[in-house]
Design a protein around this nucleic acid. Structure first.
Lengths: 346, 346
DNA sequence: TTTAGCACTCAGCAGCATAGAGTGCTAACA
DNA sequence: TGTTAGCACTCTATGCTGCTGAGTGCTAAA
């Protein structure tokens, strides 16, 4: 792959990304000023096609980058693109208001991501793994109902209504809360389950029913807070791209969007890697989305990866820009979440 | 409008709903056996057209119901349709699992609604208005941070991280919680704000900073829990309907879906009325969605309307069925929520 | 009042010719 | 040996034509 071939490939990728039309030799010669005639470029293109970097939709059309071509572009040709001031400004402003809870942050992140990339944004909600128990509170509500509230070290709060036997008074509940707090504070769920429970049950055996329910909630706080939702945004945004002129494509795309489970696996697996990952076409495991590309990256709080954000779009996407944006957004999101989860913000 | 005209109109509406094709006189004569010849039906159709109940897409096409026609159908001709056993079964099963928190219920409701109606489902999250303060808890977290948790009478729980001055100890927080609980329990937010705050500030003046933050959260618990989100489901579902063969329509529909604000107003205004409301085409205030119809109804908990669910679809929708489904679903949702919010369920 | 018959309209489709974009190949040129 | 001009070739897209069939409205007879 000599230098001129690289230049031709770069030109093809750039032009195709910009116009969504197959690129002909004349166009390259004129627009990209390689200093050679269309005929020469045609020769180069024939070679590139033989090597699998570009393809022809039909005989009398220009060339289009193949998946391999995009891959080569992303790995070797692409120049990193800085975010424009304007873009950075949009992001900063986006987080200025409305950052009162994690859900809102996730939502906003998705919005910004799709707005800036013109693709569909996917944001995995933070999944906070091991954490310590901090506080439990039983609050009497109605006659025979109470609310259990469990606070974890990482700021996660869970609550649930439970039925209480009539025999229990509100002072009982207060005592119960106190004992549980004293015994359990600072422990992880695992250790609570394994060791201490027997002791507690022995001591507070007569409240067994409530204890059971409270424990269940505590467990859920840990396990279920893998309440792994995905925020999806800007599907419409993407549909204005020319690849979706065809109704069938729109429909497959939308049906993909409704398969949350798949999207989830898609994003979750990305979060294994560090930094921004780019998957192009067939590199995505799922057959349904083989025609699209995905750019994703994990975000983290206090050094621990707790989720990821990603962008799904046509293989013909502005990789350079999208990658920078995803990169910038993860950093930003990490910061915002850090402030929010670990406190410090208003 | 004589009896035969009504029958013809009914036939046209039914057939058009079923096939999405303009209905001709021959079709009606053959399929709907009115006992008269196509020519007679043609005469009736000419009258119906003159009266504005049906329209002709072009000269050599059959007739299509106009908005007025649909309206007449919904008001006078339509027969209520019972849900099939199968459908009831689907709904019941849908709620069997996964009913642990309000969000999930809303989500599931949207899913079911769209699945059964083949339209886009919209579910407004419960907006619980006046409620009493039940419990406040300050939980120390890290060195200079604490979590405020506010529990309302109706089972709503809010929490937020706040900064605490270093001078405050965890026992201080305990005391603070206790005093606040004692003073405020059972009051509505309004009365708290108006009368009691001065007294409390006097007593606990040195914690002013924390009190401010706590009060802010309490206020939000009331006001902000108009966290009026809309759950949207089954957009894809609807796009498989023939009206969306045209890409432009798909796009407008999707752009509508992304205008949360509008959808929200749309649903919110419905919840004024009792029972199921049907808006057809231009009866919807917003110009963008003039080509669609909407069936909506409020749901309630302990007699109070706290939200609504709705269905948005092409004017050519199965009104009879959709109306029954929306009706059934609101009743069901009310029940499920009642159990969840007021406690009782596991 | 109903109906049969008939002329008329019009969307949709197939068939065909044309234009234009782009290629590959060949032969000439540096 | 690499580059380029020229040319024949291919194939899509577009627009035109004429035909078909569905469906109507009108008229006149039952």
């Amino acid at each position: 792959m000599d230098d001129r071939k690289r230049k031709v490939l770069l030109a093809i990728v750039h032009d195709y990304i910009a116009t969504a039309e197959p690129v002909g030799s004349r166009t390259i010669a004129k627009k990209y000023r390689l200093g050679v005639s269309p005929a020469t470029i045609r020769n180069e293109m024939a070679d590139l096609e033989e090597q699998g970097y570009i393809e022809q939709p039909h005989t009398s059309a220009g060339r289009v980058p193949s998946e391999r071509g995009y891959r080569y572009y992303v790995d070797y040709l692409m120049e990193k693109e800085q975010l424009s001031r304007e873009e950075e400004e949009i992001i900063r402003r986006g987080y200025e208001t409305k950052v009162k809870d994690v859900g809102q942050v996730i939502h906003k992140t998705g919005q910004l991501l799709s707005q800036l990339t013109h693709c569909t944004a996917m944001v995995l909600t933070p999944q906070i793994g091991t954490s310590c128990f901090r506080h439990i509170q039983l609050v009497p509500m109605h006659s025979s109902q109470a609310m259990v509230i469990v606070v974890m070290d990482n700021g996660i709060v869970h609550h649930r209504m439970i039925e209480t036997p009539d025999s229990i008074s509100s002072t009982d509940m207060e005592t119960l809360s106190k004992v549980l707090n004293a015994k359990l504070q600072g422990l992880t769920m695992e250790s609570i389950k394994l060791t201490l429970m027997k002791e507690i049950y022995l001591e507070l055996g007569r409240y067994k029913h409530i204890l059971d329910l409270a424990m269940e909630l505590m467990q859920d706080s840990l396990v279920l807070k893998t309440e792994d939702k995905i925020y999806l945004g800007g599907v419409f945004n993407m549909l204005s791209q020319p690849e979706f002129h065809n109704v069938e494509k729109v429909k497959t795309m939308l049906s993909i969007m409704e398969q949350e489970k798949m999207l989830h696996e898609l994003l979750a697996c990305e979060s294994q890697d560090d930094g921004v990952t780019v998957r192009i076409g067939g590199e995505i495991k799922y057959n349904v989305i083989r025609d699209y590309s995905m750019v994703a990256a994990p975000y983290s709080v206090s050094g621990q990866k707790i989720g990821s954000i990603g962008v799904l779009g046509p293989t013909r996407m502005e990789y350079a820009k999208v990658i920078s944006i995803v990169d910038f957004m993860t950093a930003n999101l990490s910061q915002v979440l850090e402030r929010l989860i670990l406190g410090g913000g208003k």
